[in-house]
C-alpha cells in the first residue's frame, strides 16, 4: 500500500522536476535560443582570427579551387587523393619558363618557379571528393586549396554549390582551348 502511493509520488515529482527545467529554458528564451534561421542567418565560418599563422594551415573544408596559372603539373595532388577524384593531363613544354599566349600558358608561377609542363586537363569531381584536405598539403605552389577561410583573399568561400545534374559537379580548371592548338605542342605521347 505504501509502495503504491510512493510510486505515484515519485512519478509525479520526477516529471515535475523535468518540466521545471524546460519551463526555465522557455522563460529565458531570448538569451538561450540556439536556433539559427538559415539561410538568413548563417553560423560564421572560421574567417575570424583563429590565432596562428594561417599561411601554413588550411582550416577550412569547402569546395576545392585551383589557380591554374600557378600549377606546375607535378601531379602530387592527384597521387595523394584517396578517391582519385582529380585528373590531370600534362605535356612537356618546349622551353622551360616560356609564355605561350595562344594556349594561355604562363611560363612563371607567382612564386617565381619556371614551369616545364603544360597542363592541358585538370578536372576535379566534387561529387567524389571526400573533403579530406590531403591534396592541399603537398602542393609546392599552394595553388590547390579549399575556398574561403584563410584563403578568402584568394577566393571567397563557397560551400553551397549544388547543381541539378551530377556531371555539372565536375569542375574543369584547365584553360579551355581547342585541341588543335594544344596538339601543336604535344610531344610523343599524350593520353
Amino acid at each position: 500500500m505504501y509502495k503504491y502511493f510512493n510510486n505515484i509520488f515519485v512519478a509525479i515529482s520526477s516529471i515535475l522536476k523535468g518540466m521545471s527545467i524546460t519551463w526555465r529554458h522557455m522563460i529565458n528564451i531570448r538569451k538561450g535560443n540556439v536556433t539559427l534561421q538559415y539561410p538568413e542567418e548563417r553560423w560564421p565560418r572560421p574567417e575570424r582570427d583563429i590565432g596562428f599563422d594561417l599561411d601554413s594551415y588550411n582550416v577550412i573544408r569547402s569546395r576545392l579551387h585551383v589557380d591554374i596559372d600557378d600549377c606546375i603539373g607535378c601531379l602530387k595532388c592527384e597521387r595523394v587523393c584517396p578517391v582519385q577524384c582529380i585528373k590531370i593531363v600534362t605535356t612537356k613544354a618546349e622551353t622551360k619558363g616560356e609564355d605561350l599566349p595562344d594556349i594561355g600558358h604562363t611560363g612563371i608561377t607567382s612564386n617565381g618557379t619556371k614551369k616545364a609542363l603544360i597542363v592541358s586537363r585538370f578536372d576535379i569531381d566534387m561529387s567524389e571528393c571526400c573533403y579530406c584536405n590531403l591534396c592541399v598539403y603537398p602542393c609546392p605552389e599552394e595553388c590547390i586549396y579549399m575556398t574561403g577561410g584563410p584563403n578568402s583573399h584568394k577566393h571567397p568561400i563557397d560551400y553551397e554549390f549544388s547543381q541539378y545534374d551530377r556531371n555539372d559537379l565536375i569542375y574543369k580548371f584547365a584553360k579551355d582551348v581547342d585541341d588543335e592548338k594544344i596538339s601543336k605542342y604535344v610531344s610523343k605521347k599524350i593520353k
Partner: peptide
C-alpha cells in the same frame, strides 16, 4: 576551429597530427 571539419576529421595521422592547436 581545430581542423576545419565537423564530423570526419582526418586529424590524427601516423606519427603525429595534421595541425597544431589554434591559439
Amino acid at each position: 576551429t581545430l581542423c576545419g571539419a565537423r564530423l570526419l576529421y582526418n586529424y590524427i595521422w601516423v606519427g603525429g597530427l595534421s595541425h597544431d592547436l589554434p591559439r
